[in-house]
C-alpha cells in the first residue's frame, strides 16, 4: 500500500521552491517601479449633480519643481486630467509650479514625512512619503482634497485639485 503523505510532502517542497523562484524575479524595471513613488494629483471642478467634484480636462499644462524651471516635468502637455510628479526624497517639503492655460500660474506645496524603507537586496532603499499637509496659491486652484496620504508605487490618486471654473475669453 502506498504511503500518500510522503509524496505530498515532497511535492509541497517542490512547489514552494517554484513559487519562491517566481516571486524573487527582479530586474531593473521592477526595481525602478518599486523605488519610485510618484504623487498623483487630479484636476476637478467643485460642482456636479450629486455634490462630488467633477473630473476636468485641461487643454494644456506645464509643470516643474520649485527651483527647477530648467527641468520641466510636463511641457505644454495637452488634454490633461491628472499629473504624476516626483516627491523630493531629500527634503520634507516639495513644491510644484503649475502653469495653466492663459498663463495662470499656481504653486502647490506638499509637506511629507519621509519613511525610509528597504525594498530588497537588489533594489536597495527608497523613501515612502506620507503626506502631512498641502498648501497652494489661489490663482486658478480653489481648494484641494487629500484622498490618500500614503504615497506608494500604485496608480491611485492622492490629491484632488479643485479649480475655479474656466471663465473663457
Amino acid at each position: 500500500m502506498r504511503r500518500p503523505l510522503i509524496s505530498q510532502v515532497f511535492s509541497a517542497f517542490a512547489i514552494s521552491i517554484l513559487l519562491l523562484i517566481l516571486a524573487s524575479c527582479q530586474n531593473e524595471e521592477v526595481c525602478a517601479d518599486a523605488t519610485s513613488n510618484p504623487l498623483r494629483m487630479g484636476f476637478y471642478l467643485p460642482v456636479s449633480a450629486d455634490g462630488s467634484p467633477q473630473a476636468y480636462t485641461l487643454d494644456s499644462l506645464t509643470v516643474y519643481g520649485v527651483g527647477r524651471p530648467d527641468s520641466l516635468i510636463y511641457q505644454n502637455a495637452k488634454k490633461v486630467m491628472a499629473i504624476d510628479v516626483p516627491i523630493n526624497p531629500t527634503t520634507d517639503r516639495t513644491g510644484y509650479v503649475i502653469i495653466f492655460p492663459e498663463n495662470i500660474i499656481d504653486t502647490v506645496w506638499v509637506d511629507c514625512t519621509l519613511h525610509l524603507t528597504f525594498i530588497s537586496a537588489e533594489c536597495g532603499f527608497a523613501m515612502r512619503p506620507e503626506i502631512v499637509q498641502v498648501s497652494h496659491t489661489k490663482n486658478r486652484i480653489s481648494t484641494f482634497q487629500l484622498i490618500q496620504n500614503l504615497v506608494t508605487h500604485s496608480f491611485e490618486e492622492h490629491i484632488k485639485i479643485l479649480l475655479y471654473p474656466d471663465t473663457g475669453n
Binding site: P89, L116, F118, A126
Partner: peptide, 19 residues
C-alpha cells in the same frame, strides 16, 4: 543597520544617508 544608503531620484537628485 545600514552604513551606506544612496537614494537616487532622476529629477530631484540623490540622497546619501545611513541608518
Amino acid at each position: 543597520e545600514a552604513p551606506n544608503i544612496s537614494i537616487i531620484d532622476p529629477y530631484w537628485g540623490s540622497l546619501e544617508t545611513s541608518l
